[in-house]
Amino acid sequence: MAFGSEASVGHRGEGAAEAAGETKRRRFAFSPAYLYATPVHLLVLGIIVLPAIFVLWLSFEASSFGQSATFVGFDNYIRVLTDPYFWGSVWNTVLVVAVAVHIELLLGLGLALLFASGLPLQRVMLVVVLAPYAISEVTAVAMWRFLFDPDVGPITLMLRYTGLPTLDWTFIPSHGLILVGLLTIWLHLPFTFIILYAARLAVPKELYEAGRTDGANAFQLFRNITLPLLAPAMLIALLFRYIFAFRLFSEVWLLTQGGPARTTEVVSVYLYQEGFRYNSFGTAAATAWMMVVISLLLATGYVWRLRKESMANAF
């Protein structure tokens, strides 16, 4: 391997004997690799990890502006967990995430299969599907707010003209959440689509040819080849989208500010209100740590599923 220092062990998969000898000899030796990795680790440590640990400490303290912190044990957690507004925000988040992310997955899967079967102007169409990725949440809110404006929005007027029900998102909480969900799907479909499309392209053509010679119809090909081979990618896309949709803030904040009367709050908005409007850092920190733990649980669940899956494939 390249740089001749003792610490650099060489290519993966070199002889096992050599690797064992290397481990025995290995004591702490300075490697230039530490220098190269330093900037990234300084940033992540200083701006994400240490602050997150500090939030954990904060969650066991009662504190606000100009008031020294005192240890209160699990009080903050109890206060948050007994706050009906918290549970309202949890319920809204779960609802939006569950519905929007799954619809997104279905749409993304449909699009991926459509693209794989060939479309006119394929390259251009790919860019068309990607376009919303470039749009800011703020601009997207401006667009969709106007399209669904209760008085002048063209989609509202069209729905009214055709006698279909309209979205009264300014005062009916569930309608506000539907609009948030629509926005979320619109903004993030490009991501889900690309993951699934890449996975679909990686499926060898021979499998489909073999299936067809065996007399399988289109549905059987989908059921027995496409779906199982795309399952890991679908799981990855779902996991990423769960974790990221769970952070949902801007769309809700810019559309409804969590209103009317805190009925459309999601967990991030609840956290923001506690911390930055009511200056209740303790309860905000407790909410924050519950978010971290749930994100970690989602990820472990995924790793566990993936392990199980590769075990199952081995049989």
């Binding site: 391997m1 740089f3 290519h11 290995r26 530490y34 952070r247 924050a288 971290v292």
Partner: peptide, 25 residues
């Protein structure tokens, strides 16, 4: 380019893990 350097391999998990922390936190 540097394999088998102490702490380096393990720090990949650290980097991946850091992505799970929501920015608002």
């Amino acid at each position: 380019r540097y394999r088998g350097v102490r702490f380096l391999e393990g720090s990949v998990m650290f980097l991946i893990g850091s992505r799970l922390i929501p920015p608002i936190v």
